[in-house]
Design a protein around this nucleic acid. Structure first.
Length: 439
DNA sequence: TCTGGGGTCCTAGGACCC
DNA sequence: TCTGGGGTCCTAGGACCC
């Protein structure tokens, strides 16, 4: 059996933990550049603020209703997420952190786990209720729990648990342990709300009269393979029928890629500005690599013009470079990224976004060939320099030390900087912004 | 005027190689 | 006239997830 724990309105809930005056009020959290709505409290959902809606389109509505608007504060959310995941690691034998606000729990080892922890539960519903209570008590974050024989069904159970909780007709947990429960649950969920069915597939399904998850579970495998993305669709059906196709990935399995991308505060037209943006992305990507003990073999640079400008496509351009040896060295990555950008750059366009993506990741030091080129690839001085940069930026704040290529021209502000006008304090991770109490 | 960022998996065609 | 099979690399794009 699998459990799925999902935090309710996670970012909005994080804002509330340290600002209890927001309880009961509509709250939304905005994306970078204060561009889109990416999280909403229940009250904001009721007002009709939609997920992903551009801020400028709903600003007036939100002002009218006194909605509290927050710029996103990933330091805070990341730290709250770690606390929630830590709680989960205490109550289940194996945890897969699926996203910042969700985790799958593998319940295969529950019997031994309970014996070790000297815990006894009446049944899985009893256990799930305790998980929910523990997380709420220790972190202040409300969660719901779904339990079922496959991950897809656990997601579905979680969804139903949330709906019932909102209607005050359920405890915030739902266990699907037998065939009758599975069938009943599938009948209640619209096909577009199934994990793995997006808007495109939902439209295709609607066109052939398939509306519920139950009906989807009954379609033929061949049809699913043809119309729902090949093997992906076939797996989805199996999972809905109760046969697991994926286990819980406990160890943070080697990630396959890593990206640093940003939209700009305003469009860029100058190569010098774009080069600065790309260099700063490459530098951040290098930091991420080193923090995770990884090295990259492939680097892709991309730039984009606006999708919404009404111009004919394409609007996205990319260049991929194979690095001579796997590396985590910022200066090498920056140079490669600049090279890629020169290949791509076409003047006379208004660029709104750029990014650096690293692929072909491996554990640092795994590239045997690099040993042959040790002087260039892994000079001890260079590693020392990287460690010193990371240490300074860790100690005195991000951006204390930068590569020259990522610094704006003298007297100019970084043209690629983003907007973030209404960010809440980093309550839990910065001394200067800790929660204050007045006595 | 103003539309996020970070992932995964899959497909396909062209260039090039042996 | 008849034109293979198996790779890699690169670019691009679709679909989905949170």
């Amino acid at each position: 059996m699998f459990g799925l724990v999902d935090c309710n309105n996670f970012y909005a809930s994080c804002e509330r933990v340290f600002r209890p005056e927001l309880e009961g009020r509509p709250v939304v959290v905005l994306s970078n550049n204060d561009g889109c709505v990416i999280a909403r409290s229940q009250e904001a959902k009721v007002l009709g603020v939609r997920m992903g809606e551009p801020y400028f389109k709903v600003r007036e509505l939100m002002e009218r209703h006194g909605v509290v608007v927050c710029s996103s504060n990933y330091e805070l959310y990341g730290d709250m997420s770690r606390r929630v995941m830590w709680c989960l690691s205490q109550v289940a034998p194996a945890v897969e952190v699926y996203s910042i606000d969700e985790a799958f729990l593998d319940l295969a080892g529950m019997a031994q786990h309970c014996a070790l922890e000297r815990k006894r539960y009446r049944d899985l519903t009893d256990w799930a209720g305790e998980v929910r209570g523990t997380v709420q008590q220790r972190t202040g974050i409300p969660v719901c729990v779904g339990v079922a024989p496959t991950k897809t069904l656990a997601k579905l159970a979680n969804r139903l648990a949330k709906i019932a909780k909102l209607a005050n007709s359920g405890p915030g947990v739902l266990v699907l342990s037998d065939e009758a429960q599975r069938r009943e649950a599938l009948a209640q969920v619209a096909v577009g709300d199934v994990w793995g069915v997006g808007s495109r597939s939902a439209a295709k399904l609607a066109a052939v009269g398939i509306r519920t998850a139950g009906e989807l579970a009954g379609v033929g495998d061949a049809w699913a393979r043809k119309n729902l993305g090949g093997v992906v669709g076939a797996r989805l059906l199996h999972e809905l029928r109760g046969f697991p196709c994926a286990g819980v990935a406990v160890e943070d399995e080697a990630r396959k890629s890593l990206a640093c991308t940003r939209s700009f505060g305003q469009p860029l037209t100058e190569l010098a500005d774009m080069a600065g943006a790309v260099a700063s992305h490459a530098a951040r990507a290098g930091e991420k690599l080193r923090r995770q003990g990884l090295e990259a073999r492939l680097l892709t640079v991309f730039v984009e013009t606006s999708k919404y400008a009404g111009l004919p496509p394409p609007y996205s351009f990319s260049a991929q470079l194979t690095l001579p040896v796997a590396t985590d060295d910022t200066l090498t990555l920056v140079r490669a990224a600049q090279c890629g950008l020169e290949r791509l750059w076409r003047p006379g366009r208004r660029y709104v976004k750029a990014g650096v993506v690293l692929d072909g990741l491996e554990r640092a030091g795994a590239d045997q060939q690099a040993l042959l080129f040790a002087e260039v690839a892994r000079s001890p001085e260079r590693s020392k320099l990287m460690r010193a940069m990371d240490a300074l930026n860790e100690r005195y704040g991000t951006g204390t030390v930068k590569v020259g290529a990522a610094v704006a021209r003298p007297g100019q502000r970084e043209a690629w900087a983003m907007r973030r006008d209404v960010r809440s304090p980093a309550f839990t991770t910065k001394w200067g912004e800790l929660w204050g109490l007045r006595c």
